[in-house]
Design a protein around this nucleic acid. Structure first.
Lengths: 251, 251
DNA sequence: CGTCTACTTGAATCTTCTCAAGGTTGGTGG
DNA sequence: CCACCAACCTTGAGAAGATTCAAGTAGACG
């Protein structure tokens, strides 16, 4: 889990550790997929000024909790977060996993309080973007306003994909879709699309996909046996992407 | 279904027909729950200027189709719309039902094309809001910008509630939740919260809730037998709201 | 090295789906 | 006005998939 073996510090990157938080948007290697996307450098600097970079979140630590006053949205800088809400009867529902470059917390805007909680699945760092500042800035930067509308719209689209998945698909298809989603998001960050480590537990996966742990486990075993995915604990290697893709549509 | 018997035109409302589309936002009885919410009357007039009111949609008619270029979002003025998308394997997934005062089409913003289709479940009228105009107007009207952010955020929250429902709940709980949702939205429009007519078919309900028609039908029969809801065809009367609410949480 | 948590596996059970058939409703045209 | 048609809805019986309950195993961490 993001284990940091001793690393020799290179000249280019003063801090090779992925949890460094002193950088600004202009230098951030995520800026092409994150909020600054499509902004000009002068505008990026303005955006930079409103962004607050706190210390890293420890594994299990909360970024915010359901019901907290809403003040900011957050860009994931490193690590992984899960968002989840409590149902009326006290059970947990995972609503999403958030990887570097993605924005979390947008569901809090409508009620001025967070509609879900967000916690770190591993040591993670975020950039805090005070929403009132973002609103003001958006009014004067059409590009930013548009991009933020787009980010929210994308969240809607992704939720709808999940709805479809939960509504129509078998356990196998759900797991396949999750693996492909993680794969794609890795590719966007120029990480391996075929080999990665799951930062979330089987319980979280099951909770997210509407399955029990046992079922998740059995599906992984099946995928392993049919040589579609190599599963070793949380270490995943996709052996046959086509077959995986096949699974997502096939019922 | 919204049959329009000959009606004597009253002095106050030039067109008593609920599908009239000549009115403007200032006069619209939905303005307190629709986009103009929280705007001052001067601002409402400006908003009014960008809104286009077309002729009513016939039952079954499409407002837009998945893949169409995105240009506008739409406020439902009368009737009901359903939004749905095609899955990769050609099946349909209903992603939402939209009642008067609600905004449909926001999922198209992120890709500049509509991510879903929207069609009328009964004769319906909408107000078309060209998105580029809305963007421009938002930049100069902080209230409007905020409200639109909030509307999108609400869509996210509602999708997440549906995710929870699909992920955790039994067939009974899903139907109960849908009935309560419709009830609440009726109340918001000052219609009866206990008695209403479903504008969608059993197939649509099942599709939306991830159930087969047969299961939907059986649940309605069960609700009828246990005297929680009186079901007569599409006519619904909630007899025991508490029991219904109980059902939504109970597994 | 032992303990705790996370994960896997098996067997029985249950809910929902599938398939098949029959019943209603509403509209159309004779 | 009635007969007919097409959608839509309901009901039943059997099958399939996921859940539940109950062990058991492997890893992680002190």
């Amino acid at each position: 889990m993001t284990s940091q073996a001793p690393i020799k510090v290179s000249r280019q990157e003063p801090l090779a550790c992925s949890h460094e938080f002193s950088a600004n948007c202009s230098d951030c290697r995520l800026n092409s997929i994150c909020l600054p996307f499509s902004l000009e450098s002068r505008d990026i600097e303005e955006l930079d000024r409103i962004i607050q970079r706190g210390r890293p979140l420890q594994k299990g630590g909360h970024l915010y909790r359901q019901g907290d006053d809403f003040g900011s949205v957050y860009a994931v800088r490193s690590g992984t977060l899960k968002a989840y809400r409590m149902t009326d009867d006290g059970r947990e529902q995972v609503t999403g996993f958030y990887f570097p470059g993605e924005i979390v917390g947008m569901d809090g805007i409508s009620q001025s309080r967070h509609a879900s909680s967000a916690r770190a699945l591993e040591t993670s760092a975020v950039c805090e973007i005070p929403f009132s500042s973002l609103e003001k800035l958006s009014a004067s930067m059409p590009q930013l306003q548009r991009h933020f509308f787009q980010l929210m719209s994308r969240e809607i689209t992704e939720d709808q994909q999940l709805i479809t998945l939960l509504s129509k698909s078998s356990a196998d298809a759900r797991i396949a879709a999750l693996l492909l989603s993680i794969s794609m998001r890795n590719a966007r960050r120029r990480l391996s699309a075929t080999q990665f480590r799951l930062s979330m537990s089987r319980v979280d996966i099951g909770n997210y996909l509407g399955l029990t742990v046992e079922t998740v486990s059995r599906v992984f075993t099946r995928l392993q046996k049919s040589e579609i995915v190599d599963v070793s604990n949380r270490e995943i290697r996709i052996l046959d992407e086509a077959a995986l893709r096949q699974l997502t549509s096939g019922e």
